[in-house]
């Protein structure tokens, strides 16, 4: 099971440059029965390896835009700190629900 989760998560992660965590984390919690907090760190570590290997292929194909990266990364670090701080202070249910509804809306737009 561990191998299957890794394979599926890895392939999708390489293909889309994102999303392997969205597969591996829930699978670790529901199938491998790892407690959610530990599963988060463990998932991140696995995804890090996937990202490093993917980056070689993306680099080879000249997909990286190093000019814009610093802006996004700076924002990401600020946002990450804010996110971790407000994590327990927000109504997770409604926020998550609207986030995933937005995701579905965008997904349909991208497919059509």
């Amino acid at each position: 099971m561990i191998y299957a989760i890794g394979a599926v998560g890895g392939i999708l992660g390489g293909l889309f440059g994102a999303g392997s965590g969205l597969i591996i984390l829930p699978a670790m919690v529901s199938i491998l029965k790892i407690d959610e907090y530990k599963a988060r760190g463990t998932t991140l570590a696995v995804v890090m390896f996937v990202t490093i290997i993917s980056s070689f292929f993306y680099y080879q194909n000249n997909y990286f835009d190093f000019k814009i990266a610093p802006y996004i990364i700076t924002g990401g670090i600020i946002g990450g700190i804010i996110g971790a701080k407000i994590m327990h202070k927000i109504p997770k249910f409604w926020l998550s629900l609207s986030f995933y509804l937005f995701m579905i809306f965008i997904a349909i737009r991208m497919i059509l």
Binding site: I2, A7, G13, G14, V50, S54
Partner: peptide
Amino acid sequence: KMAPIAVAGGAFGA
């Protein structure tokens, strides 16, 4: 256990 398989999958996917 998971990382080597995930890395192989990642290389294939990328």
